[in-house]
């Protein structure tokens, strides 16, 4: 399984990458939406994208729209990583094709529970 973690915070990227690596995901990172688009274009398909809402260059919503425009990524599950104040905008992302959301502060268990909801394996 391959995952792409997109967040402008290096600390959050590191935490999420560790959580995913420990259950067997091969993880790539991008610091904003535009970089994510470049990583996507240059790599094999990903099974999962964890996407922050508020990022420079291209925000999470724009990235979801960009990904969902391309049928090549139809099988990629997208989860928004969000805060309570961003929730109303996250609804727009869900309507635009994101599959799930997780709210900060999150625990490892919460991330794994959401992966299960999206039908992804959570055992190492």
């Amino acid at each position: 399984m391959r995952a792409l973690v997109v967040d402008d915070s290096k600390a959050i990227r590191r935490i999420l990458s560790q959580m995913l690596s420990s259950i067997g995901f091969e993880v790539s990172e991008a610091a904003h939406g535009k970089e994510a688009v470049e990583v996507l274009a240059a790599s094999d398909p990903f099974d999962l994208g964890l996407i922050d809402w508020n990022m420079p260059e291209m925000n999470g919503f724009e990235l979801v729209c960009e990904i969902r425009k391309n049928s090549k990524y139809d099988n990629m599950r997208l989860m928004m990583v969000t805060t309570e104040t961003e929730m109303s905008q996250v609804v727009k992302a869900l309507e635009a094709g994101a599959n799930e959301y997780v709210m900060k502060p999150f625990t490892k268990e919460m991330i794994y529970e959401k992966l299960s909801l999206m039908g992804l394996p959570v055992s190492p």
Binding site: M87, V91, E95, N99, E100, V102, L117
Partner: peptide, 23 residues
Amino acid sequence: SQLEVNRGLPAMLLVKFFERVGT
């Protein structure tokens, strides 16, 4: 509350069957 819908409920069902009222 947001906390109550955060876990267990798939996001698609949240969007389909709930509406946001304030927070």
